[in-house]
């Protein structure tokens, strides 16, 4: 087999695997529609679909939007995590890296404490402060006089993250303990229980656009993981492309977590799994990671809403399962030299 045929065959194999995973995820999403605690706990196909308004409402207005949100949020968080990892050439990076998560958390908490009832304003505030954290990290990094550009960004991200963490602590201190503090705590643990079609529609175009841009850059992300001078020498404009992709990934993340709350580990763990399955070439490992992110969040949410009578916050589950998967991946044989 010559190089052309081999490359063609490998591409076909990867595309087949991608389509297979996508099909499996959609199949599970359909099956999980029947998982829940109504009318009784477990998998139940509704026999009174045509006659019972309550049944239809639970399936179409509660479970379905929740599943759609899990798929969307999983793909978006995974795509952002993957992008951050490539841009910083570091497989241990995720969207919270430049203070984005803490900034968003502060923005959401601030609106909750100010008694703003509008979900949209909480979303906007979370997005605004997430972006502000990114901008602050970037500007502070340009003022640092220590280390290379990536190290300076890492250090300024740590500082900005700590600043927003302490500001969040102050907000929690003054929060009304019986309602606001609980809302903030639940938001920080993440959850899809509030998912509604109107919420999904409010973020849909931003999320689709962000994912579209990141997918468009899927092969060029490889080049941006190299040293800047090298990517420049092969015809890239690394500074411009890095800024574009950082903004896109951050906006996608903050808009998503503005309605799901903080959901950690998806953006860290699924890119690792994606690279294990598809190799390091981001042209297939990025879409692969996005499908895995959707699947991971779908499974976590289904467990969270079905296993106990009370809901388990999804952020707790993603952290718990994510940490276990992470340890397993890094302990597998033949890991040397594979990122």
């Amino acid at each position: 087999m010559n190089a052309r045929q081999h490359y063609q065959a490998e591409r076909k194999r990867r595309t087949g695997l991608l389509l297979g995973m996508l099909g499996a995820t959609l199949l599970f999403a359909f099956l999980f529609l029947f998982a829940g605690r109504y009318p009784t706990a477990g998998f139940r196909f509704p026999t009174d679909w045509a006659t019972n308004e309550m049944t239809r409402s639970i399936f179409l207005r509660i479970r379905l939007p929740r599943i759609v949100l899990a798929l969307l949020a999983g793909a978006m968080l995974s795509a952002s995590g993957f992008t951050f990892q490539m841009l910083f050439s570091n497989p241990l990076v995720e969207p919270g890296f430049l203070g984005v998560s803490q900034g968003s958390a502060f923005g959401a908490a601030l609106m909750i404490v100010l008694g703003v009832g509008s979900t949209l304003l909480v979303q906007l505030s979370a997005t605004f402060f997430g972006l502000l954290a990114l901008l602050a990290s970037y500007l502070i990094a340009t003022r640092f006089r220590f280390g290379g550009w990536l190290l300076r960004l890492v250090l300024s991200g740590i500082a900005v993250s700590a600043l927003f963490s302490s500001a969040l602590g102050v907000v929690k201190l003054v929060a009304e303990p019986t309602k606001d503090l609980q809302d903030i705590t639940f938001w920080m643990m993440g959850g899809l229980w509030n998912a509604s079609w109107s919420q999904i529609l409010s973020i849909l175009w931003v999320v689709i656009l962000s994912m579209g841009i990141l997918l468009g850059y899927r092969w060029k992300l490889n080049l941006l993981s190299l040293q800047e001078k090298t990517s420049f020498s092969v015809g890239m404009n690394p500074k411009r492309d890095r800024i574009i992709l950082l903004i896109v990934a951050t906006v996608g993340t903050t808009v998503t977590i503005s309605i799901t709350g903080l959901i950690g580990w998806v953006g860290l763990i699924t890119p690792h799994l994606g690279r294990k399955l598809f190799g390091s070439d981001s042209s297939t490992s990025l879409p692969g990671s996005m499908i895995l992110g959707s699947f991971f969040l779908l499974v976590c949410d289904t467990i969270g809403r079905t296993v106990l009578a009370t809901e388990i916050p999804i952020g707790l589950l993603t952290s718990f399962l994510g940490a276990i998967i992470f340890m397993i991946i890094l302990s597998l044989k033949h890991q040397e030299g594979k990122a």
Binding site: Y7, S280, D281
Partner: peptide
Amino acid sequence: LVPQFEQYNFSFSLLDYVLFGRS
């Protein structure tokens, strides 16, 4: 450009890496 040194944090295959030259 052939730099003196290139640091990689992702394990591309050799063919994937050489393909970057086609950018």
